[in-house]
């Protein structure tokens, strides 16, 4: 079982969280000309590589906040967790 450190609540079990996918995907800006390819990349296309992966989780059975988690997709090691609005660079 994963143990995820919620930046708001502290270390909690995976059961309290729900997964939200790749956190590096950016929605195309509103009010601009956006190509089909841009929408495609936002809605469907994913790198989904082996190794470090920055992803969204929601602390559904806790504070209900969305958070960012940097996790290794092969070993499940969690390197760090961030608030959703924190810069991940």
């Amino acid at each position: 079982m994963l143990h995820i450190k919620c930046p708001h609540c502290g270390m909690r079990s995976q059961n309290e969280f729900s997964y939200g996918g790749d956190a590096t995907v950016k929605r195309p800006e509103l009010g601009k000309e956006i190509s089909d390819q841009d929408w495609d990349n936002f809605v469907y296309n994913r790198k989904s590589l082996r190794g470090k992966h920055l992803e969204l989780w929601q602390h559904l059975s806790g504070c209900r906040q969305w958070i960012k988690v940097e996790r290794d997709t092969a070993t499940h090691e969690i390197f760090r967790t961030l608030k959703a609005n924190e810069d991940n660079s």
Binding site: G21, N41, N45, R46, K47, S48, L49
Partner: peptide, 16 residues
């Protein structure tokens, strides 16, 4: 698939 697609500079509608 995603690992080999990356070597081909392709991004696919696939998650592993």
């Amino acid at each position: 698939t995603n690992i080999l697609a990356d070597k081909l500079n392709m991004t696919l509608p696939i998650e592993t």
